[in-house]
């Protein structure tokens, strides 16, 4: 498989000559990603109070949660409502592991692994169902899984949830989420600069045509949903450690079902920075307005979704 090596003038010219705009900005993206990495490393060590740290964590959490959705659904065009299912799979698995005597790193790895399997379930669904039907099925999956979380008391703690058996530091959750965000963003940058990324985007544009020119669409979908599942599972594991518990109310709330979809589409599906900026802006805006209206996040998300649907082709 040929790879377009971005950054070299001749290849860039060639790529541009073939109408290839995907790879040109890769060096700029990588530099920006480096700067973001440094900023994320430094931010907690600045002289800030714990409230600012919490807000910072939530900006990071929503950004990472949105970006992993962008990696799977944004790139392939399979709009999933079941993203909280991946988060919850990772979160519950990690705490279940801790309760069964696993070490901290093993429990987090278990969370990521179960998240990966959950992503595999979505990939399997996508083999049989497309577009509207896929969206519909993922909505059923997330609703069914919420009920499962409430009923499967031996594993999930049922309606009272699972308490984290030991205290972990803020830094652990923060850096794990940062790693998930950076890895996901890097994956999107690299995908956009390579042929394989174009193959993925071809699935979004027209899956039948993509398949007819020899692209293994099922494998690509499985790869992306699996990767997004594993990364979201990791975010889920670090999130329940941050919260100190895993509970259906925290892992399956209405706004988490639609948040990654809304923010990715606002920022631009399959784009590198748009979804991140949308997620960061959303978190700061809701945080500022939360006191005046507790359900303001739903109003903002709802209005954003309506606007996107009105103004933009998906």
């Amino acid at each position: 498989m040929t790879t377009i090596v971005a950054g070299r003038p001749l290849q860039r010219l060639l790529a541009a000559g073939r109408g290839g705009t995907l790879s040109e900005r890769t060096p700029a993206h990588l530099v920006t990603l480096g700067l973001v990495t440094v900023a994320l490393l430094v931010a907690p060590h600045l002289n800030v109070n714990s409230y600012h740290l919490t807000v910072l964590y939530y900006v990071l959490f929503y950004a990472a949660f949105t970006q992993t959705w962008n990696l799977s659904s944004g790139m392939t065009g399979y709009l999933s409502f079941a993203h909280p299912f991946l988060l919850a799979a990772g979160g519950y698995a990690a705490l279940f592991g801790l309760h069964r005597g696993l070490g901290l790193s093993a429990a987090i790895a278990l969370g990521a692994g179960i998240g990966l399997l959950a992503g595999g379930v979505l990939a399997l669904t996508s083999v049989r169902a497309r577009h509207l039907v896929f969206g519909f099925l993922t909505l059923f999956i997330v609703m069914a899984m919420e009920i499962v979380a409430e009923l499967w008391t031996p594993v999930t703690g049922g309606v009272s949830g699972l308490i984290a058996p030991k205290f972990t530091s803020f830094e652990l959750s923060y850096y794990l989420t940062a790693v998930a965000l950076l890895v996901t963003t890097l994956a999107i940058v690299l995908l956009r600069s390579r042929i394989v990324g174009r193959e993925v985007l071809a699935i979004r544009d027209d899956e039948d045509v993509a398949a007819s020119v020899g692209i293994n669409t099922s494998m690509l979908k499985a790869l992306l949903f699996g990767a997004a599942g594993g990364l979201t599972g990791l975010i889920g594991a670090s999130h329940v450690l941050f919260l100190g518990s895993a509970h259906p109310n925290n892992l399956f709330p209405l706004h988490l079902i639609v948040l990654p979809l809304a923010l990715t589409l606002v920022g631009g599906a399959s784009r590198v920075w748009g979804p991140l900026l949308a997620a960061g802006g959303y978190t700061l805006l809701t945080e500022m307005l939360r006191v005046s209206a507790p359900t303001i996040h739903l109003i903002i998300l709802g209005a954003a979704v309506v606007l996107v649907a009105r103004l933009r082709s998906i």
Binding site: L254, T295, I299, L301, G302, V305, V308, A309, I314
Partner: peptide, 12 residues
């Protein structure tokens, strides 16, 4: 999506 957003907006 528009109806989904409308629903969220109303709930909010």
């Amino acid at each position: 999506l528009a109806t989904f957003g409308l629903g969220l907006l109303v709930v909010g």
